[in-house]
Simulated assay, not measured.
Amino acid sequence: MEEGDEKLFKQFERWGELKVRADVAIKKYPEHAHTSALRWLRGIDEARERAAADIAAEQLEIARSAKDAAWAAAKEAERASSAAERASSAAERQAAAAERADTKALIAIIIAIVSAATAIASIIVPHYWK
C-alpha cells in the first residue's frame, strides 16, 4: 500500500463498493486515485474469492462427512437386514416346531380319549354281559 492509499481506502469505504466501481468505470478519479481505487477493488474481489473458496472447502467437507455417514448408515442397515432375515428364519423354524408340537399334542389327546373310552368300556361291559 502506497502513501495516501490509506486515506483513499477509508474514503472508498465510506462511498461503498458500487459507487467506487461506477466511478472507476467512468474514470472519474485522477490517475493516482484511480490506481488506488483499482487496488482497493482488487482487494475486495480477492477477499470475496477467498471467502467463496473457504465456503466451498467447508461445503466439500460437509459433503464428505455426509457421504461417510450415509455409507455407515447403509452398512448398518445391511447388518440390520441380515439380522432380520436370521430372526425371520428362526421364527419360521419355531412356527414349524410349534405345528409339530400341536400335532403331537392332538395325537396324545386322541390316544388319551381312546384309552379313557377303553377303560370305561372295560369297566361297564363286563357288568352288562354277565
Rank of each mutant, 00 (worst) to 15 (best):
M1Y: 02
E2S: 12
G4P: 01
G4T: 09
D5G: 08
D5A: 15
K7N: 07
K7C: 02
Q11V: 04
Q11N: 09
Q11I: 07
R14V: 12
G16F: 05
G16L: 09
E17C: 08
E17A: 04
E17H: 01
E17Q: 11
L18S: 12
R21S: 09
A22E: 15
D23E: 15
D23R: 13
V24T: 06
A25L: 13
A25H: 09
E31L: 11
H34R: 08
S36P: 00
A37W: 03
A37Y: 03
L38C: 12
L38T: 07
R39F: 06
R39L: 12
R39K: 13
I44W: 01
I44N: 06
D45Q: 11
E46D: 14
E46S: 08
E49H: 03
R50G: 01
A53F: 05
D54G: 04
I55W: 01
I62D: 08
A63C: 08
A63S: 12
R64D: 09
A69D: 15
A72T: 09
A73F: 04
A74L: 13
K75H: 05
K75I: 07
E76P: 00
E76S: 10
A77H: 07
R79Y: 04
A80Y: 00
A83E: 14
A84M: 11
E85F: 02
E85L: 11
R86E: 13
A87G: 03
S89W: 04
S89M: 10
S89E: 15
A91F: 04
A97G: 00
A98C: 07
E99W: 00
D102H: 07
T103I: 10
T103K: 13
K104A: 15
K104Q: 15
A108Q: 14
A108I: 04
I110F: 02
I111D: 09
A112P: 00
I113H: 01
A117R: 02
T118R: 06
T118W: 08
A119Y: 11
I120Q: 03
A121P: 00
S122K: 05
Y128G: 02
K130D: 12
